[in-house]
Write a protein that binds this DNA or RNA. Structure first.
Lengths: 231, 231
DNA sequence: CGAATTAGTAACAAAAAGCCACTAATGTCA
DNA sequence: TGACATTAGTGGCTTTTTGTTACTAATTCG
């Protein structure tokens, strides 16, 4: 009856070129910043995301770790895929498909490569169109996940003040939060514990340092929230 | 100092084989179900996810639409990437990398291909290991996104009762919800509007039919919720 | 007709979040 | 040295949201 099978699963798999594009995010100078590397001479744009083709039998996250480590000197502690990008948008290596991966690095970590730099998300230099799309998606994913995953703690050193933590949340969410409410919610969550150290930052009362130490898992049996839709 | 450049972006892009694996989800018999197709004779497992290699210059979502349409007769209205899978886990076509894409179709839509069937998520037949991973990830993504995106409405016909809608939420969330709270939250969200039709389903009072018609965008200026962490 | 069944809502109680104002501990500088 | 500016941290009141119970409404079944 049918001229061809309804379920076309037998077509030969085409060979395509694949790239892993890494978006390393970190708070720099009161803004979320992306780590870019200088493009080789002759490239159309002067800066690109760190990227490479995955090696044989190398997982995508492993490839991302290797690529980020080459620029930073050490691998970030957090990675997450943000999507596969295959549209016609130009890639610096002309890869057919890019896997975008976001990595988070604490404030203060410096890149080991001199051919790299941190650029605030709202002040990026010209990038290949595909890289621009990957960065935008990565930022959107980070903002969307911030209260489903302890992302914010990956953007801070092992100990931090509660004001530091609140600043990271404000950075990701793009709005100011109320100090008392923020601390009350944090208290109820059992996510941090105080150390016995205090940091004096010039003027003002010294702040206690805390560390990320999630202890309990509350049921969180909440009703449905229809007002969180983002699309 | 270093023996090789810190930023290894010049390695030749390897050629890899790529597959798009589609997880079509729909509520069937009080459970979330996946659409599977019969594998060709000689395959190690009798069932697989619908999959294929993307054609030249075909976007990944376009490929997913084509693949799903071949089984269903029409393309689903909703697609979302759930990740790229590259680990050694075996794929039916031995693709190096799979892009997993979840598609949602309303309750009641029938497959046009006789070589296909709906299987509840907790009663799947043996699948290739990579396909099993893709299905698990797709279900996790659907569950995670249900209150950030109007997913639930994609699993229902154009008009539905509020009890239908609540049932879909309960299916996705895996727990019962309170009727009054659910309706109050829905009311406040301006996501649905009543039609002037009513449905009588055997015994009991007839229920009014509603349609998805999002009207307002509330600011949703809420504080941070630390209790929503899922990992 | 009355019991069973499903839809829909009012009203109250409990919990969470927003908000303001306060106290605490430091540095700055006249 | 002592007032003041500055940042940290908290108590407690108000407002909003959510959980819960218990009701009323409209239908079928027998």
């Amino acid at each position: 009856m049918r001229e061809r099978p309804a379920v076309p699963m037998k077509s030969a798999v085409r060979r395509t070129t694949l790239a892993v594009d890494v978006v390393v995010l970190s708070p720099r100078a009161e803004a979320l910043a992306v780590l870019l590397v200088r493009a080789p001479a002759g490239a159309r744009e002067r800066w690109t995301l760190p990227w490479d083709a995955p090696q044989a039998d190398e997982g995508l996250e492993d490839a991302a770790a290797r690529i980020a480590e080459a620029v930073l000197g050490e691998a970030p502690a957090f990675f997450e895929q943000v999507g596969a990008f295959s549209d016609a948008k130009r890639h610096p290596g002309d890869a057919d498909v890019s896997i975008g991966i976001v990595a988070l690095v604490p404030a203060g970590v410096e890149a080991s490569s001199p051919d790299s730099g941190w650029f605030p998300l709202d002040g990026l230099p010209p990038l290949a169109p595909r890289h621009r799309a990957v960065v935008e998606r990565a930022a959107a994913v980070a903002r969307q996940r911030v209260d489903q995953s302890p992302l914010a703690f990956r953007l801070l050193p092992p100990t931090f003040t509660l004001t530091d933590l609140q600043s990271v949340y404000e950075l990701l969410l793009g709005r100011r939060l109320h100090k008392a409410s923020f601390r009350r919610a944090l208290q109820a969550s059992y996510l941090v514990e105080p150390t016995d150290e205090w940091r004096s930052e010039g003027r003002g009362r010294p702040a206690q340092l805390f560390r990320f130490a999630p202890r309990k898992r509350r049921g969180a049996r909440r009703g449905v929230r229809f007002d969180l839709f983002t699309e």
